[in-house]
Structures are given as C-alpha cells and as structure tokens.
C-alpha cells in the first residue's frame, strides 16, 4: 500500500512541477537570473507550496504514526554544519548551470528529452559518488 501511495504522490508531485513551470529549465533560469529579465514565477511556486505545506505539516507532525501505520520519519538533526552549507552550495551551482534540480530532472526523463536523460545519469553518478565516499568513512 505504501508503495502505491508513493507512486501516486510522485505522480502528483510531477504534475505539480509541470503545472508550475518548473519542468522547463529555461523558466527556472529566468527566475535565477536576477540581473537579466527576471521572471518571479518560481517565488510564487515556493510560496504556495510552503503555505499549503505549513498547514498540513502542522497537523501531520502531531501524529505518532502515519495513516498507514508507518513511523513518522521527520528529520531530527538541527546541526548547521559544513556538509549542509558546502553541499547546498554545490547543489545550487549545479542548479544554476542547468536550471534543473532533482524533481524536474526526473520529470524531464519522462518527456524523453535526450538532454534530460544525460542530466539524470550524471545526477545519479553524483549521488552514487556520495554514497561511495560515505561508505568509506
């Protein structure tokens, strides 16, 4: 059941990305280009997502188990450390270079765009590198 829910939520999330315009890298770059002709749309995407999320999370986090009986796995770490900042900075540079972050990358894969396929392969390679280094330490 939780696998079916995960698929449906992934689907809904992907539809949301397409409707929002985030599956178009050119639009994302239009938002990140403050010094050019700036398209503020994605600020509204984030605003609406957080507004809905805040209301839902406020209710959901009071639960001890999920509706399907799963443990509520909400991150407990509060550390603002080097991996958080360096990792986020590297991610942001990559995001700015292509206009693609992980969610839209996967929806791009579904459009069959060859450049989307290449980006996703590189992204998984980067993730695999992280897992490899983590296993060594």
């Amino acid at each position: 059941m939780k696998t079916i829910v995960a698929f449906l939520v992934g689907l809904l999330f992907g539809i949301g990305l397409i409707v929002a315009g985030m599956s178009n890298p050119a639009k994302v770059l239009g938002f990140l280009d403050l010094a050019g002709a700036w398209d503020p749309s994605l600020a509204l995407v984030m605003g609406a997502a957080v507004a809905v999320g805040m209301a839902g999370f406020a209710v959901a986090r009071r639960r001890k188990v999920s509706l399907l009986g799963e443990p509520m796995q909400i991150p407990a770490s509060r550390a603002i450390d080097r991996p958080l900042v360096i990792g986020s900075a590297l991610f942001g540079i990559g995001w700015g270079l292509a206009g693609i972050c992980p969610g839209p990358a996967l929806t791009l894969l579904g459009t069959g765009a060859p450049k989307g396929v290449v980006f996703v392969l590189a992204m998984f390679a980067g993730m695999a590198l992280f897992s490899l280094l983590q296993r060594r330490n």
Binding site: V9, L12, A51, S66
Partner: peptide
C-alpha cells in the same frame, strides 16, 4: 502548481510518514 507540490508533500507525510 506550487499548491499541488505542497499538497503532495503533505500526503506523503500523512500516509507514509
């Protein structure tokens, strides 16, 4: 689209934790 993203995130938390 943003509202859909927020809603999807809430669903995953509520159903799957």
């Amino acid at each position: 689209g943003g509202a859909l993203l927020g809603f999807a995130a809430v669903l995953l938390l509520v159903f799957n934790g």
